[in-house]
Amino acid sequence: MVDATTRFFEDLDRRGFEPLLEKTSGTLRFDLHEDAQTTHWLIQVDRGRIRVSREDRDADTVVWTSPAMFEQMAAGREDGIAALLRGDMTVTGDARLVVQIERLFPGPPDSRGPRRLFAREAG
């Protein structure tokens, strides 16, 4: 079974174009590190067009976190902005980029969204 992290990046790469990033350009690298090992994921955005690779290259924004925290975020169980405020994730470079990419993460799996009254009565 593929983990949520890999699935998140593969989905993003497959999508090719993301309307939410239409006004965004730049490169962002996630460095997921644990002990001596660091996994890199590089996202290149060019006005909505996205490419994902595992290159360790210079980027406009670099985000550090643990693989475990990222896995939770990719599954919607942790929130990226709260993780940033808490220091469980740190950023250098252009903060706008991380805020834009954070919006692509899923919401919590148990969040149901607004429910219409009649739907509730039926359920």
């Binding site: 929130d79 706008r96 993460f105 919401g107 919590p108 969040s111 969204g113």
Partner: peptide
């Protein structure tokens, strides 16, 4: 606009 909601999150009441 740059932080307009994109997903359902019941805790943050995001839609």
């Amino acid at each position: 606009a740059s932080v307009q909601g994109t997903r359902f999150d019941d805790f943050r009441e995001e839609d």
